[in-house]
Write a protein that binds this DNA or RNA. Structure first.
Length: 937
RNA sequence: GCCGGAGUGGCGGAAUGGCAGACGCGACGGACUCAAAAUCCGUUGCCCGCAAGGGCGUGUGGGUUCAAGUCCCACCUCCGGCACCA
């Protein structure tokens, strides 16, 4: 009668935990601490997806097990609630985003509670809470109040910024402007990615292949005033300090590649005056440079380039500048002006996709002018081409077609000269005549045709020429990063307003003076709007706010509020800090609390945040660290990415347009894919085929869950059908946490029947009322039972530490398989097992714990300790091989040495027969492992 | 193109260089039942064989080793990411 019924016991225990504040964490850890963090979700209107509970269950198991082992655990949850979908919903329906967001959060909260996660809900935050926004804005003020001191590689208060004498002399306004330029949060007019369909500007990272990441809408480039964050100042630290982190190497590498540090040299190429003696001018310039050295800023009379291969200087055959290069107009001769202008005009309209090398070939035009090679004195023509990016390095390159594939392609396209100056330094043969068939060589080697540097290896050459250029004042070593400053403003409604005022003159026009609000004036609330529609222009929706919001007066001056809002990343950059002190109204986080709990010990989330979220968070954290607001330089110690959960495995056959089936792989456009039920398919060799037509191959694959494919699994449904414990357990049993794996509904049924078996281990299912099974007794467990129990304890314990939940569950299944047939089940055998089960299937464990007469909650019971004595065997079975092939097994004492093993093996009748008459060449006997006879004859 | 990750039964997956396939799903057989479901017990990598037994097996080809899923070299396929960063 009393069958295992998750629908009743799960809500019951969830209510119990709530009432008893079972998972509330203290303000400060009582002893050893563990901060176990999930990437908080964006509360979409679709509710929880089965992908969410995967990582959440993993951290929940770790948290619950840690609590049972006496660790002070902090395990919070919240919501990343600003963002585009809520705003788009608002535009469609006219509902204010706050309303739909609150509704969605309520759904998410209900679903998360339904799964029995042991979050401390007292710490819940949403990035949209005014009490949270206040401190996001406050951190912006910190960024705005900070400049990066390159000397100390640290962010420092703007008040400490040294003001150059000439700036100070120019007056207060000049000083203010100088400061504004140096702040970590600064304004820029740079061209931005404007997406008309979304009505917003997007960060470079949000533009994938020329279209918006979200929605795939076209993006155009427009110049616009924007807030930028100077993340590039921290590039070096962001890269270097990755070393100290316990992160997957693949994620570290993604971040390194994204930061894209490269080392090389900047070199100045002399621009001869339009009229006058080029040779004499060049000589005079060189002499001047020897005296004055390499100037910080490139003067007007040079073209400054950046290269990672200064050893190829003698192979330069042309210079290429970006279309947006500041010297472009000056370098263009009158006869080329029309052509160059037309080219640059066209390039400005090209999307990033068109400018990548996916587009066919290289384009470019000659400017008509030339510069002088600093080492050879030869004239080098200057071209404009859009394969050179204005935003990287100096926006200009030296083109070395023989040793750079992009330059090679460019030279080939326009028939430019190719000069080989590096040859492969192969050990086996002295390179003879240059191999004309392979003019492109991008590897490292030995210099040729390079004047005094002939014969030098690439690395030595780079070092030497670097020194020489520096001495001659012609160049200097340089470091560059692919990482760009972070475009931090959005022209949307549903985001944090900036705590910034723009001063207005008498005519109501901005004077260009910016005033940051005082921290006491925060938060700046979002204005009430009725129309959320983005405009046709990049004018943000907030500019349509009431005058009462938009205009403010301070100290007798009129100001207009900043109407851009912050991007969604802002809130998620620091939520892990607010969780520690979520209701603090005095400061963003109490330093005592911060020191006690930080850094995060385990951070689990999807790999899609490998670069952006994790890089932005680290950046903010380092700024807060530099400014003394947090105590550690890195926020996240151990990071783990959970894998994606795919839809159920599908078989797809193809209906030929002409009728009948066509084998997968041979189908054309006109043939229609059709889903085939699994029972109509069978495996034949490498492939699946139709059972009724084995000559027809069928595709078998699991696809990413998506609404359009209709293979989305809904957690509510799974909980209804199998229970939350079954869902949790199944997600952990599917395979390794990090792996991508397909969903299988029958698999959920499998773990559910394991839970049923656990239930029946304790409960008499056929009794009228809930009662402990008759087999449960007060016997002392026997040796065999203790062996099984302690081995299970040992395995489950170590597997939780290594996040190998699938094998931990397998071990518990083995225990249940062992214990089920027992006619007498000692209570003291069952209670430790229920404890092991508790982190995985907490509701069932609480129920069984109570039924076994223990005081709840098992969630805070002591974790069992494996007793070494039961992990050892007295005798073991050892495989015996002859010629490496398994031929027999012998049972020997566990501590038998090699000689004893060999003797026992040789005595085994089957082995003796095989060895008879053979010459034994070698015997490998590994105690505790195996015996292998190597014989001849 | 470049950089990661992965290829093991019908399926998901286990395996400190030492018995490949733990555990689960599915399938098959048995017990219980009038019957079915549920449950319990058992079998289940492939091939040959009545059996005892034997052979073959971790994407492909080579190598190291007494011994390779695991280490090394080359290649193939799939998945993910990056993509003119000089």
């Amino acid at each position: 009668m009393p069958k295992y019924d998750p629908a009743t016991i799960e809500p019951k225990w969830q209510a119990w935990w709530d009432e008893h504040d079972t998972f509330r964490s203290p303000r400060l850890p009582a002893n050893k601490k563990a901060y176990i963090l999930d990437m908080f979700p964006y509360p979409s209107g679709d509710g929880l997806h089965v992908g969410h509970p995967e990582g959440y269950t993993a951290t929940d198991i770790v948290s619950r097990a840690a609590r049972m082992r006496g660790v002070s655990v902090i395990h919070p949850m919240g919501f990343d609630a600003f963002g585009l979908p809520a705003e788009e919903h608002a535009i469609r329906t006219g509902t204010p985003p706050r309303e739909s967001t609150e509704r969605n959060i309520a759904t998410f909260r209900r679903q998360l509670k339904m799964l029995g996660f042991s979050y401390d809900w007292h710490r819940e935050v949403a990035t949209t809470d005014p009490g949270y926004v206040r401190w996001t804005q406050w951190i912006f003020l910190v960024l705005h109040d900070t400049w990066f001191d390159p000397e100390t590689q640290r962010g420092r208060p703007i008040a400490e910024l040294p003001i150059p004498a000439e700036v100070a002399a120019a007056g207060e306004q000049a000083v203010a402007a100088y400061r504004d330029e140096q702040r970590l949060a600064y304004q820029s007019e740079a061209p931005v990615n404007w997406c008309p369909a979304l009505g917003t500007v997007l960060a470079n990272e949000e533009v994938i292949g020329g279209v918006s990441e979200r929605g795939g809408h076209p993006v155009v480039r427009l110049p616009l005033r924007q807030w930028m964050l100077r993340i590039t100042a921290y590039a070096d630290r962001l890269e270097r300090e990755l070393d100290s982190l316990d992160w997957p190497t693949s994620i570290k590498k993604l971040q390194r590649d994204w930061i894209g540090r490269s080392t090389g040299a900047e070199v100045d190429f002399f621009l001869p005056p339009v009229s006058g003696d080029t040779a004499a001018g060049f000589a005079a310039w060189k002499e001047h440079r020897v005296d004055t050295g390499f100037p910080e800023q490139a003067p007007d009379n040079v073209l400054r380039i950046y290269t990672t291969r200064p050893d190829t200087l003698y192979g330069v055959t042309c210079m290429v500048i970006a279309p947006e290069h500041p010297l472009r107009a000056r370098l263009t001769t009158a006869d080329r002006a029309a052509t160059v202008e037309a080219y640059c005009e066209a390039a400005s309209h090209k999307s990033d996709l068109d400018r990548t090398d996916l587009a066919e070939g290289k384009t470019g035009v000659f400017t008509g002018s030339s510069c002088v090679h600093p080492l050879t004195g030869e004239l080098v023509p200057i071209w404009v081409a859009d394969y050179v990016l204005a935003s990287y390095g100096t926006g200009a390159i030296m083109s070395v077609p023989a040793h750079d594939d992009r330059d090679y392609e460019f030279a080939q396209t326009f028939g430019l000269k190719i000069v080989t100056v590096v040859e492969p330094a192969t050990a086996e043969s002295e390179p003879t005549a240059q191999d004309a068939a392979a003019p492109l060589f991008t590897g490292r080697g030995r210099a040729i045709a390079s004047g005094p540097y002939n014969g030098m290896e690439t690395d030595a050459f780079i070092g030497q020429v670097g020194t020489d250029l520096l001495e001659a004042g012609l160049g200097r070593p340089a470091v560059n990063y692919k990482l760009r400053d972070w475009l931090f403003s959005r022209q949307r409604f549903w985001g944090e307003p900036f705590p910034i005022l723009h001063e207005l003159d008498a005519a109501g026009e901005p004077t260009g003076v910016v005033r940051a609000l005082d921290p006491e004036e925060l938060p700046v609330p979002l204005p009430e709007l009725t129309d959320f529609r983005p405009g046709n222009t990049p004018d943000p929706p907030l500019s349509r706010a009431d005058a009462s919001w938009l205009y403010v007066e301070r100290d007798g001056k009129r100001y207009r509020r900043e109407t851009n809002t912050m991007p969604q990343w802002a809130g998620s950059c620091w939520y892990y800090l607010r969780f520690l002190d979520p209701t603090n109204n005095e400061q963003f986080l109490d330093p005592e609390v911060e020191r006690a709990w930080m850094p995060v010990d385990l951070y689990v989330g999807g790999a899609e945040h490998a670069v952006l979220h994790l890089l932005y968070s680290r950046f903010w954290h380092k700024v807060l660290y530099d400014r003394g607001h947090v105590s550690s330089p890195e926020p996240f110690g151990r990071l783990v990415n959970q894998g994606m959960i795919l839809g159920e495995m599908e078989f797809t056959g193809y209906r030929a347009a002409a009728g009948g089936w066509i084998s997968a792989g041979q189908q054309g456009e006109a043939d229609t894919p059709m889903k085939i039920p699994a029972e109509q398919v069978e495996k034949q060799g490498e492939h699946f085929v139709l059972r009724d037509a084995p000559q027809v191959r069928v595709e078998s694959r699991a696809y990413k869950m998506s609404k359009s494919r209709g293979n989305v699994v809904n957690p509510d449904q799974v909980v209804r059908d199998f229970g939350a414990d079954a869902l949790r357990l199944y997600e952990m049993f599917m395979g390794p946490l990090e792996a991508t794996k397909p969903w299988s509904t029958t698999g959920v049924g499998g773990v559910r029947s394991f839970l049923d078996r656990c239930w029946r281990l304790v409960v008499d299912e056929r009794a009228e009322a809930l009662a402990v099974a008759a087999q449960v007794c007060e016997d002392e467990p026997d040796a065999d039972q203790l062996r099984h129990l302690h081995r299970t304890i040992a395995k489950v314990t170590t597997d939780i530490d290594s996040l190998s939940f699938n094998t931990a569950i397998a071990k518990m299944m083995e225990f249940v398989n062992f214990a089920t047939p027992l006619e007498r089940r000692p209570r003291s055998l069952l209670t430790p097992f229920v404890k092991l089960l508790a982190p995985f299937a907490p509701h069932l464990a609480e129920e069984l714990w109570a039924l076994l007469g223990q005081a709840p909650p098992v969630s805070l019971a002591d974790w069992p300790v494996a007793d070494e004595q039961w992990l050892r065997d007295e005798t073991i079975e050892i495989p015996v091989q002859v010629q490496g092939k398994l031929r027999a097994r012998v049972v020997v004492p566990a501590d038998a040495d090699a000689a004893a093993l060999e003797a026992a093996a040789a005595a085994e009748p089957k082995i003796a027969a095989l060895l008879d008459g053979k010459q034994i060449l070698k015997v490998v006997a590994v105690p505790g492992r195996l015996v292998n006879f190597v014989v001849k004859g």
